[in-house]
Design a protein around this nucleic acid. Structure first.
Lengths: 237, 237
DNA sequence: TAGCTCAGTTGGTTAGAGCAGCTGACTCTT
DNA sequence: AAGAGTCAGCTGCTCTAACCAACTGAGCTA
């Protein structure tokens, strides 16, 4: 009864004092007195809040208001997906489809509306992909940056963060599960097509480009991930 | 150092043993021995996992694998939005725009593809809205059900859950902040328009209907929520 | 002055005791 | 014999008290 309450009261404290991200919170002894609870209970509440990204704890330094990022959501999504995968569900495919559904919807609204500055940046990113593909390096980070920059034009920080969270969760799970990386050259060409499409302002073409891009990832996926429950997946691990 | 580790090890335990939602976890004493940590540390780890929805703790009963729902994400999003609002940001508006952006994108893909059974259900829901509006009752739950049923046709459980999570977060924050409810009759008419549009298979019309619906909510919002940072909001609280 | 050391602060971990909610078997009543 | 009440035992919850570990900053030393 008390534990849930403590979390709420600490959250209320943050709200009431209008504390911004990075602002210091009372120390554990201070919270003990303020909340009228033992150190142990206070710590459990803080741990829970930390897990939600509301609070940030630094050993020997203090407790602070967290960055309020969507990192915990990534964590949760990733775990849920991994757990589902190992139980034979096609959870990773669902996660990919989630991204595909949302991004195809957004990219069509975005076509032709991207600021010139972002277009320049996207060009540079695809060039970098080319270069990375040529020397056989991984292009995960650049891929991430491409998608992030692409949707920046939507002018909604929250939306961008959510999309990045989906990307992160997907990427983390895929690497955790040791999925095969896709062909860098194909990926590269598809990103250039997406960029060209949104630059031309052709919404349908942009949507199609995104769909093809995801189709490619999906194809790579189905070689490792089971499409139906309880499919064996020992063929090549 | 140990704490972060404990969480990971408990997660690993769930993965390795292929535990499904609702499956029982070892008791605290058992975990103490298995993890080689004190009761306190084990509990802190469990609390954190509980906050992420990975674990579910029932007093006097036991610890279980959680439902892996997106409830923690709702919690986090809601808090982030409330905190931002009180600090003068237009966080609630951003959350609404997130929903609008995603739903407009999805509804156009959905137009004309909704199973007949779902259409019947949607009809019934709008009828219920009518009835609720007539007798002056709140139609929040019905609104939620409408949106949930609408996107069910996308055939992606994860996606539906995410949309519901956004709805929940938005609704929770709006009621927490005491925002004015919108005009039931207008809301009702707009939902019927959305339904008619997707039934007719006209993607553009469906998109427009959704946009108008959200435009309505947005208008109600701007009477209470500040549109720009550090706007006073004492005029009518 | 530059660098080191050490005391004080903060969070991290452990230990042991007692409290509180739930279950199931036992007993008493009907 | 069947049902309701009781109690012992599990479970997680909270508290106290002590010590460990990371970081800061003042003071000492070279």
């Amino acid at each position: 009864m008390a534990a849930r309450d403590l979390q709420e009261r600490i959250k209320k404290l943050i709200i009431d004092r209008r504390l911004a991200s990075g602002a210091p919170l009372p120390t554990e002894p201070e919270l003990m007195e303020y909340l009228g609870a033992s150190r142990n209970s206070v710590r459990e509440a803080l741990k829970a809040l930390q897990a939600m990204g509301i609070v940030e704890i630094r050993h020997g330094f203090g407790t602070y208001v967290g960055p309020m990022s969507l990192a915990p959501m990534i964590e949760g999504l990733a775990f849920r997906t991994v757990a589902g995968h190992y139980r034979g569900e096609d959870s990773l495919l669902q996660l990919l489809e989630l991204r595909e559904a949302v991004e195809t919807g957004l990219v069509s609204r975005l076509a032709g509306r991207i600021p010139d500055a972002d277009l320049v940046e996207l060009d540079a990113l695809v060039d970098r992909m080319d270069e990375e593909a040529a020397r056989g390096a991984g292009l995960a980070e650049t891929d991430r940056a491409f998608h992030a920059t692409l949707y920046r034009g939507l002018d909604n920080v929250l939306l961008c963060e959510v999309l990045e969270a989906f990307w992160d969760a997907f990427h983390r799970v895929r690497t955790d599960l040791g999925g095969e990386p896709q062909d860098p050259k194909v990926t590269c060409r598809q990103h250039r097509e997406i960029l060209d499409a949104v630059r031309s302002g052709d919404a349908m073409r942009a949507e199609e480009a995104i769909r093809e891009h995801f189709g490619n990832i999906r194809a790579r996926l189905s070689t490792t991930a089971p499409q139906s429950p309880h499919t064996r997946h020992n063929e090549r691990v």
